[in-house]
Design a protein around this nucleic acid. Structure first.
Lengths: 206, 206
DNA sequence: GTCTATAAAGCGATAGAC
DNA sequence: GTCTATCGCTTTATAGAC
């Protein structure tokens, strides 16, 4: 029995365990034996399904990326009324600042993926693609919030907001910044960028 | 023979090697044997000088932190004329975006330290202290650039700028963002924050 | 597909000579 | 202070039974 992504249930259980172990110990702290214990299987089964440790990592990070897409996308159908574009943007960005296991797992894994790519370019392509998609989504929302702003300025602002988000996220996850403070700083950052875009000067060029 | 910091030359050579290895493989990728090869000494000598692997890491990170202070501080005496506060701020922040071995080593180690603290709080205190000092320095420069701005708004803007800097830095170091683009985005971020501070609205509160 | 058992390698750390 | 040699634990990965 396979689900939509072609993943058997056993494989899925292992990948869910991997997400939990990565959130707890990091990508580089993941031990195959720990993962086996977490998922309630033998180490041999993990090698059977994923070939080797890098294989586990690749699939786990893809799995985590899919999950993130899903909870990002459900902003549409869920909760509150249409709302204005700015509020929609703020709500989307704040989705990353919630003290829920799934959000922590995704954010932690994402940060790990970035940090790991500094030393090992192997996953760079996937990271670039996912990051570009995410920045484009933010740019769309931002463009809707600032109808008159020139496109390059909007793109730049979106890149800054996603970079800011990750800078704040790692501070929160490492216990250096309380969650509420991270959220406040994120919101203020959005407002500063929107004000700049609305003022008619491009933030990108002199 | 000891230098000003009480470090023998041999110890210093090992720590410089550690900075290089950390820049190449990360804090968690540092192997004592690799470091020994890099520094041209035996592994035993490393244990003789630094007791164990965490000891190497502690001293290496302190060493790297000192070096960073030094090149941050030399902005005063060096190069160009007094310059206005905004330009001084911009120059200070852009110091972190240079393709020089020492800067790469420092930025890489700093990012590693942050990422590592997500999973191991052991170094959290040092990280918090260094981060707070850095944010305060940025806040001072920012305050000088925006004389009328309320202190809490300046503090918040400084926190965002340091978070943005690290978010951009990791993208640069992982090869996802060309250096010039990271620099442009950083400058635009500074300008957006300054514009917001100058406009009279606090970015921190509604 | 899944397990138990184990080989093989990696790595931190120490002993002891010089 | 510095080296060579090695110990012992941890971790990846495979063999082979079921």
């Amino acid at each position: 029995m396979r689900d939509a992504t072609g993943t058997t249930e056993r494989r899925r259980a292992i990948l869910e365990g991997a997400a939990r172990v990565i959130a707890r110990r990091g990508v580089r702290g993941l031990r195959v034996a720990d993962l086996a214990a977490e998922a309630g299987v033998s180490t041999a089964l993990i090698y059977y399904h994923f070939k080797d440790r890098p294989g586990v990592l690749r699939h786990a990070l893809a799995f985590i990326g899919d999950r993130a897409d899903r909870y990002t996308a459900t902003g549409d159908e869920a909760a509150a009324p249409p709302a204005d574009p700015r509020e929609l943007l703020e709500r989307t960005l704040l989705l990353e600042f919630q003290d829920l296991p799934e959000v922590r797992e995704n954010s932690t894994a994402w940060g790990e993926l970035r940090a790991h790519t500094v030393f090992d370019p192997e996953l760079r392509a996937e990271l670039a693609a996912a990051g570009a998609a995410w920045a484009a989504e933010v740019a769309d929302l931002l463009g809707a919030a600032c109808p008159g702003a020139p496109a390059p300025a909007v793109t730049g602002a979106a890149e800054r907001l996603t970079a800011l988000l990750e800078g704040l996220s790692v501070r929160w996850l490492s216990g250096l910044l309380p969650l509420w403070h991270a959220r406040d700083l994120m919101l203020a950052g959005v407002r500063a960028e929107i004000a700049q875009l609305g003022s008619g000067h491009s933030a990108e060029f002199d």
